[in-house]
Simulated assay, not measured.
Amino acid sequence: MGTSGAFGGSGAWSDTVDSLYDVADSLGSETNATISAPAMATLGRSLARGDRRGKSYDVGDLIGSRRVHGASSSGDGRDSSGAPFTREAARGSLVLDALASIESGEIPHLVEYGVDFSSLEGLSGLKLLTELIGLILGPPSHPDDVALQQALMATMRSAEREAGGTLAETIGRFVSELAWRRTVVQLTTSQRRVSALGTSMRRLEQRVRTYISGKVQQVNGQLMNATPQNVADFASKLAAKACRLFGRGDDK
């Protein structure tokens, strides 16, 4: 059936949604079923729609409070399908960079964001992250915005378990999480969702998450000179590279 036109349109995601639900159905009936490369290739193409190479998005245009209200897709990168995956990866990476900067006491570094961070004094953990999301990303106006926030929250929880990781590693986990969360937006708005529930969907989530994470780890690298612009560019290119890898091999 594909997805609702409000969330990307059947032309953009229908093949991917159908492929993933086919996988979910097979996982529910076959103990050794695997995710096919073609299914993941369609996912990569859907996520990469709008930017297949990882553009360099100007930091000023990524900050929610500094974008012009009601901007068109030419201004904020958004159309009826939401903003490109690479752009959302860049936006989320700025939140992670600001969080890391505050936690390490590098307050002058935050001046480059053009955002007043004075209200964050004394905050830490989830409260700090929540406030940073509001300051840097602004209020959600699309299901993909909610997916972005959820991905950041999940990344913070994983970072707490992976103490001592680098910013590049944290961004890698975030890009993986964001890819899955954006896919969920499409799966949950599909009219076919009733055909695959319960155990089969949990298995699908586990397999797809593992697959995505493995591909992101393959292309993740070192982040040198972590200015906000470099961080955004790093995340955008990482997201695009991972999408191009989807479909090559399986999740074994």
Rank of each mutant, 00 (worst) to 15 (best):
L152E: 00
D15C: 15
L135M: 09
R173Q: 02
C243G: 03
R209M: 08
H109G: 02
F85Y: 13
I102N: 09
V59G: 00
A89Q: 03
K252V: 01
E88H: 09
S213R: 11
T42P: 00
R182P: 04
K241D: 00
L197A: 11
L126G: 05
L223Q: 07
S4E: 11
A89H: 07
A71F: 12
V146E: 15
G8L: 04
V23I: 06
S73K: 07
W13R: 05
L120W: 10
S4I: 13
T188S: 11
D79R: 00
D51Y: 02
G105W: 06
H142Q: 12
I133H: 07
H142W: 08
Q217P: 03
Q150W: 06
V95S: 04
R91S: 00
N220A: 15
A240T: 02
T86A: 12
A48F: 03
A163L: 11
R181W: 02
Q191A: 14
A147H: 06
L152Y: 13
P139H: 08
T199S: 15
I212C: 13
G165S: 15
D76I: 07
I102H: 11
H109M: 12
D144R: 07
E121D: 04
A179S: 09
Q218N: 08
A226L: 09
Q229M: 00
S176H: 05
V185I: 11
E177K: 13
N32Y: 09
L99C: 09
A89M: 04
I102W: 11
F85G: 08
E106W: 10
T31C: 12
F246M: 00
E169A: 11
G77K: 04
P108L: 05
L62I: 05
E88I: 02
P228H: 05
P228M: 05
A37T: 03
S29M: 14
S81D: 06
P228S: 02
L27F: 06
V231L: 01
S236G: 01
L27C: 06
L137F: 00
L197K: 14
G11P: 12
A98H: 00
M156G: 15
Y57G: 01
A151N: 11
Q218T: 12
T189P: 08
S93V: 03
A232G: 12
M224T: 15
R203K: 11
G165K: 07
F246A: 07
L204I: 09
G11C: 11
P228R: 10
A179E: 10
A100Q: 09
L178K: 03
D15N: 15
L96V: 03
A242I: 02
A6T: 14
P108K: 03
N230E: 06
R244I: 00
G114F: 04
A90I: 04
A12C: 13
F174P: 01
T188L: 07
K241C: 00
M201W: 08
L123Y: 06
S158A: 12
L43K: 04
G28S: 14
D144W: 02
L197N: 06
G221T: 15
S56E: 12
E177R: 14
R66H: 15
R207W: 12
G50D: 01
E106N: 08
A37L: 00
S56M: 13
S29G: 03
A33N: 09
E162P: 04
D79G: 13
S200M: 10
G44N: 09
T130M: 13
F174M: 00
M40A: 14
S101T: 10
D22K: 10
H142S: 10
Q191Y: 02
D61E: 10
G164Y: 00
L197Y: 13
S72I: 07
